[in-house]
């Protein structure tokens, strides 16, 4: 059973929250804690591969996604209903696992700790 979930729902351009959530995920993985990630709501924008922020906008967190596998963070979940609402041309990062909302609601109950950012 996976114990930790970092649930990211804020945009990386509106606050530091997503960045600090991702930082925590990496530290937890470094300490060999089983950790899964979930991206929802405003944080879906982080999965967009075609973004070109200026430095003033904040860090492009999408660039950090490919490094997750080196930390053995393999389960990065997104609800398929959320993806359906996005523009068809959105270039989404391919490392995500899609779950429908019902499956996600069930999965959510399996985590011992859920941290939201």
């Amino acid at each position: 059973m996976n114990s930790f979930l970092i649930h990211i729902s804020s945009s990386s351009f509106s606050s530091l929250s997503a960045k600090e959530g991702l930082d925590l995920a990496l530290v937890m993985a470094t300490f060999e804690q089983p950790i899964d990630l979930y991206f929802g709501e405003q944080a879906l924008s982080i999965l967009n591969q075609k973004q070109n922020p200026e430095q003033l906008h904040g860090k492009d967190l999408s660039k950090a996604l490919p490094s997750l596998e080196f930390y053995d963070i393999e389960n990065i979940y997104v609800c398929s209903e959320d993806i359906d609402k996005l523009d068809d041309n959105t270039a989404l990062w391919e490392g995500i696992k899609l779950l429908d909302r019902e499956s996600w609601a069930q999965k959510l109950q399996t985590y011992e700790h859920i941290l939201r950012f």
Partner: peptide
């Protein structure tokens, strides 16, 4: 303290309560 301290706390106590 580093985040490692948090990881240690969370994995060594019975309950973690979060305040956002």
């Amino acid at each position: 303290e580093g985040l490692g301290t948090l990881v240690h706390l969370m994995s060594s106590t019975d309950r973690t309560i979060i305040f956002r």
